[in-house]
């Protein structure tokens, strides 16, 4: 985090500089498969496939839709069961899955259904392949004569000792959440945290949702959590952003993930944060997919806690 701040501060130097669009030759484009796959405890596997697009390729909606892949064969194995995933498309969603589709693609169901061509994910409603703690899930993708593989494990979840809301001294109706964690010194732990108001269908991710215990291995400590929902909620004023309001009921989900998966997400957020800065190194995000594809196949286990924001 501190280095991101440093990069930001250095970036201030060029705030007043002149920026203009240029056309320049960027050689070396190669089309690659992109995997966006995940499996959670008690939930079906979801795999979204697409391809990389040339930096100068058209960026209209048709080009975006054309980047999705729907002619692959995708299988998941937990070592005992092997299931071929089905293609579920936005023009033929099973009843009750609309909110999931909205969350996966980031569009309302009306927008999805208005698309000129449907978007598809690979999944299975076979409960035998739903995520279970301690199991390793192997993903195999066959596409255009090539085979891509990956494996991910759903780790044992880790929780917090407590989660409290404390009001701000100068604005008592607003406050932060304070969590207390006792970290296991014998394990290397990687986390993602998300939040939602109770009743919301999906969680909101903060600016940097991934962290590991590199800095606090074996320590017990209290830390602050800000309100990630407030940044996309127009009812919050500028000065309220980041705080929880008195009376809010919120849910924290702390997910654990493996090291390779963490490296993907860590580098991904570094790229997002530093993109465009001359002070940052060009980061190619390391994939845990073998066979030449980009992206990630990640298993998550979750611990969650609900807190009512009262003093």
């Amino acid at each position: 985090m501190e280095f991101r701040v440093l990069i930001f501060l250095c970036g201030l130097l060029v705030l007043n500089s002149c920026t203009k669009e240029v056309k320049i030759d960027i050689p070396g484009y190669e089309k690659q498969l992109v995997v966006d796959g995940s499996i959670r405890e008690g939930e079906p596997p979801i795999v979204l496939l697409s391809t990389t697009q040339n930096i100068y390729a058209p960026t209209d909606i048709s080009a975006y839709l054309a980047s999705f892949v729907s002619d692959a064969v995708v299988t998941i194995s937990d070592g005992t069961n092997t299931v071929t995933l089905s293609k579920v498309c936005t023009d033929n969603l099973p009843p009750g899955t609309e909110p999931y589709a909205e969350a996966i693609f980031g569009m309302s169901i009306q927008e999805l259904q208005a698309l000129p061509s449907p978007l598809c994910v690979y999944t299975s409603f076979d409960p035998s392949i739903f995520g279970q703690i301690g199991k390793t899930y192997t993903l195999t993708i066959s596409h255009q004569g090539k085979t891509y593989t990956s494996a991910t494990k759903i780790e044992t979840p880790v929780g917090l000792d407590y989660l409290n809301w404390k009001p701000e001294a100068n604005a008592p109706t607003l406050g932060n959440l304070y969590g207390f964690m006792t970290d296991n010194p014998n394990t290397s732990d990687n986390f993602m945290w998300e939040m939602k108001h109770i009743g919301d269908p999906f969680y909101s991710k903060p600016f940097g949702p991934f962290f590991n215990d590199q800095f606090f291995n074996g320590l017990a400590f209290e830390f602050t959590l800000y309100n990630p929902m407030s940044f996309n909620d127009s009812t919050y004023t500028e000065s309220e952003r980041g705080f929880f309001r008195e009376g809010d009921t919120v849910v924290l989900r702390l997910s654990k993930l493996g090291k390779a998966e963490y490296q993907f997400f860590d580098k991904k957020y570094n790229q997002i944060f530093s993109s465009g800065s001359p002070f940052a190194t060009p980061i190619n995000i390391p994939s845990n997919i073998q066979g030449g594809a980009l992206g990630v196949w990640a298993g998550f286990s979750a611990w969650s806690d609900t807190v009512i924001c009262l003093p």
Binding site: Q32, N54, P282, N284
Partner: peptide, 22 residues
Amino acid sequence: LPTSWYVQDQNLLFNYGARNST
């Protein structure tokens, strides 16, 4: 510079080309 882009979890990401190729 990035030679290509892709989307993961609704985030636009870049894939960089050969070192110092631009």
